[in-house]
């Protein structure tokens, strides 16, 4: 079964900044800054154009690591963001 595509949580908005992205929850205000290179991954999610292959290829370039390593980093980042409530739980 294909895993669900991660999406930003419904109560979350974000600001694109030079050095990353700032996440804002409606009830709490600014809650986190996502620095680069992870801000590149966030951009894919935020723009609704995330696919596993696309994220792996891009993060492999940004992190300058082989694709398998990049996939591990992506899984770690997504798990952290899910736990923090930044991503919708499917």
């Amino acid at each position: 079964m294909t895993p669900p595509i991660p999406r930003p949580a419904a109560d979350l908005s974000w600001i694109v900044e030079t050095r990353g992205a700032t996440l804002i929850q409606r009830r709490h205000g600014a809650v986190a800054s996502i620095p680069y290179p992870y801000a590149g991954l966030w951009a894919l999610l935020a723009d609704g154009r995330y696919t596993r292959d696309r994220a792996r290829d891009m993060m492999s370039v940004l992190l300058q690591t082989p694709p398998q390593e990049a996939e591990k980093e992506i899984r770690r980042a997504l798990a952290t963001w899910r736990k923090a409530g930044f991503l919708q739980v499917e």
Binding site: R19, P35, G40, D57, M58, V61, L62
Partner: peptide, 22 residues
């Protein structure tokens, strides 16, 4: 576009590391 997007995010990442403005 995938090439453009990757370069944009890499350069932003690079600029953050090197205190440059992209």
């Amino acid at each position: 576009w995938f090439c453009t997007e990757t370069i944009v995010h890499y350069v932003r990442s690079l600029c953050a590391r090197m205190d440059l403005v992209p």
